[in-house]
Design a protein around this nucleic acid. Structure first.
Lengths: 204, 204
DNA sequence: TATAAAATACCCATGAATGGGGATTTTTGA
DNA sequence: TCAAAAATCCCCATTCATGGGTATTTTATA
C-alpha cells in the first residue's frame, strides 16, 4: 500500500485527484494540505510514502517544504506537482530533495504512473519537462546571494536608502549591487531592475 | 441530461473533474478545452448546457470567451471556475454573461451543486465570494480608459517620452496622466506606478 | 444646455535610479 | 596559498519619475 499526501491550495484539484485514485487498490490518500505549513504538520504526524507537492503555496512554498521533509523524513519522497516548467524551478525542487516532477497540464494518468514508479524507489519526470543537465546542476545563479537578497527588497519597492538602513550597509553599496545586477542581467533603463524583480518572481 | 464543457489549461484538473462526475447519472462532460480558442470551437460545434470556464487561459481569456458564448449561444450558461476572488474579476465575468462563479479552492462538491442549480435555470455563486452589489455594478473603474491605456505602456517599461511618441501626444501630457493615476490610486514614491501596473495585471 | 470629467499641455523643483568611473577588504574555492 | 569573486564603499553626471502647481479644450452626461 502506497500512502500519498497532497499539498495544493486548490481544493478542487485535491478532490479530483482523490476521485481519480479512489479505486486504485495499491494507493491511499492519507491526507491533504492547502498550504506548506499544513503539509509539514501532516507529514510530521504521519509520514506518507509520497508527497505530491505544489511549488507556489501560501505560508511555506514547495521548495522550502521539500527541504524540510527531506531532512526530517528521508523515507518520504517528494514529487513536485506544478505549473512551472522552467529549468530553474526543476533544479530548485531537485536540490530540495524532490525525486519527481510533474506538470499540472499533464493528465492524472501521469500522476498515477509517477506514484507507482517512485514507490519502487525510482525517480519520475514528466516527459514534457526539460531536465536540467548534470553539469548545470552544479552551477549557480548569475546573481550572488547578497544580490538576490537586495533584489527582493527592490521588488518590494524599497529605495536604496531604505535597503541600506535595513541591511546596515551604505547606500552606495546598495547602488553598486544594483549596478552589478543590471550589468549581469543585461538590463538597461529606468525601472528595468524593478520590472525584472517583479516579473521574475516565481518565474525562476 | 446536463451537458458540460470544461475550459481549463491544467489537464490534471480536467481529469479530476471528469473522474469526480463520472458516476453522476444526470451529467455528461461533452468536451474540454485547454485554452479559450479551443473552447469557442468546442461550443460552436456542440453547444453544451453549461461551460465551466477559467479566467486566465492562453489565447482567449475567460472574460472574452464568456462574452462570445453569451452572444452566439445564449442557451449555454457560463460558470466561472477560477482562483480569482476579487470583486472586479467577479464583476467582469458577470458582465460577460456568466451565471455562476466558483473558486478553485472550494471542493468539487460545490461544482456539482452549481451544475445542478444552474441547469434548473438559476444562478450559483460560491459562498466564499463577495458578490458585487447591484449599484456598484454600474460604476466604472477609478481610472479613465486613456489612463488605463497609458498604464499598460508604463507596465511595459516605456518612458514618458516613448509613450508620448507612441500616442502622438506631448510628454507632459503623459506625465500629467501619470500624476493623475498616482493620485487616484493613492500611491506615492518612486516606481510605485510601475509596481502597480505590474502587480495589478490580472489582479483585477 | 450646463457642468463635470477627461484629455491635453505646461512650469518648476526634487528625489531616486542609472550609468560611467574608481577603490579596498573579505570570502570562497581550486 | 593564491586568485577570483563577493561585499563593501565612494565620486560624479545624467536621466527619469514624482510631486507641487497652473491652464485650456474637448467630451460625456444629466
Amino acid at each position: 500500500m502506497i500512502t500519498v499526501a497532497i499539498a495544493e491550495d486548490h481544493q478542487a484539484l485535491i478532490d479530483g485527484i482523490q476521485s481519480y485514485l479512489e479505486y486504485e487498490d495499491d494507493i491511499t490518500i492519507v491526507g491533504h494540505a492547502n498550504d506548506g505549513e499544513q503539509l509539514l504538520e501532516l507529514v510530521e504526524k504521519r509520514p506518507p510514502n509520497i508527497v505530491l507537492c505544489d511549488i507556489r503555496m501560501p505560508k511555506v512554498d514547495g521548495i522550502a517544504a521539500a527541504k524540510m521533509i527531506q531532512n526530517k523524513f528521508p523515507q518520504t519522497k517528494v514529487v513536485a506537482f506544478t505549473m512551472f516548467d522552467q529549468e530553474e524551478a526543476i533544479r530548485q525542487m531537485l536540490d530540495a530533495g524532490a525525486v519527481g516532477y510533474i506538470l499540472k497540464n499533464s493528465s492524472l494518468k501521469v500522476v498515477l504512473e509517477a506514484i507507482r514508479t517512485i514507490a519502487e524507489g525510482k525517480t519520475y519526470f514528466d516527459k514534457k519537462i526539460h531536465l536540467p543537465s548534470a553539469e548545470k546542476n552544479k552551477s549557480k545563479s548569475v546573481l550572488s546571494s547578497r544580490e538576490k537578497e537586495i533584489l527582493v527588497l527592490v521588488g518590494r519597492g524599497r529605495t536604496s536608502h531604505e535597503i541600506a538602513d535595513e541591511l546596515f550597509i551604505g547606500k552606495s553599496t546598495v547602488d553598486t549591487h544594483r549596478k552589478n545586477m543590471i550589468r549581469k542581467l543585461g538590463l538597461s533603463g529606468a525601472g528595468e531592475l524593478l520590472r525584472y524583480a517583479l516579473e521574475k518572481k516565481y518565474d525562476f
